[in-house]
Design a binder for these strands. Structure first.
Lengths: 128, 128
DNA sequence: GATGTAAATAAGAATCATTCGCATCTAGAA
DNA sequence: TTCTAGATGCGAATGATTCTTATTTACATC
């Protein structure tokens, strides 16, 4: 029940929209997607709640593409491809991140590793 | 000769400073580092030349930390650690990125992979 | 049902990084 | 010398994100 309560309808809608989306939307994109459903939604609410989600570990920041931060509701470590042309952020679902990597990193730099980000960039199928 | 010519003294200084630095500086940090040496340097020149370097593949953008882009003069693929507390960006020099990864990614999404970014985040030694 | 409190929100102002526009300067070619 | 292309400084413009403030909402207590 921690995630969804009746009386944060906007907060819940933002998280739900983010989880539904495969496109790793920006704050602005989320806002546009939700606007029809929630006409009185404001950008401040989107940003504020994204920061809350990030803090709670419900959401990760995947990348910032052309100066715009992109979010992902799938917090399991997974691999991304970012198209330099069109800015698409795509999951590479069939690629795995070996569990050994974070542990190796930790022993390498002597701190606490809490997250791992593996991404490729180049041109996507549509932009070649 | 492509890289260093006598008469782009500021451009050359920016690239040299970036290559010397292990700290993955931001545009602002580069500006501050170079200011004593080049009192009439301007931020516009730093940004302009960083974009030129990036276009020429002389420099990569490692990450954006707290909304600020961080650069690296080492364009060979290598692994980074980003401290969530202090924002430090650290090379994990002893970790390797297997050559197989970019090729696997390419065959996975059917585009052209030109770059690869593997980074970890968490707390660095000093911030634990 | 009335009231208090704490958190959520909308709206817009403010901030900060980055880019742009333009006038000036400089190196080298003609 | 004169001309041209490109580099630069400066300040304004832009755009993403955060902050401020007044308002609203949900719930607890009376």
């Amino acid at each position: 029940m921690a995630v969804s309560q009746k009386h944060f309808p906007k907060r819940d809608a933002i998280l739900q929209q983010l989880r539904q989306s495969k496109a790793h939307p920006s704050a602005e994109t989320l806002f546009q997607l939700l606007k029809p459903e929630i006409p009185d939604l404001s950008m401040g609410t989107v940003y504020r709640n994204l920061n809350i989600f990030r803090q709670q570990g419900l959401v990760i920041s995947v990348a910032t593409v052309n100066g715009v931060e992109r979010f992902d509701g799938n917090t399991a470590p997974h691999v991304h491809f970012i198209c330099d042309d069109c800015g698409a952020v795509i999951d590479l679902e069939s690629m795995e991140i070996p569990d050994s990597l974070p542990r190796a990193a930790e022993s390498c730099m002597g701190g606490q590793v809490s997250g791992c980000n593996l991404s490729f960039n180049g041109k996507c199928k549509n932009c070649i």
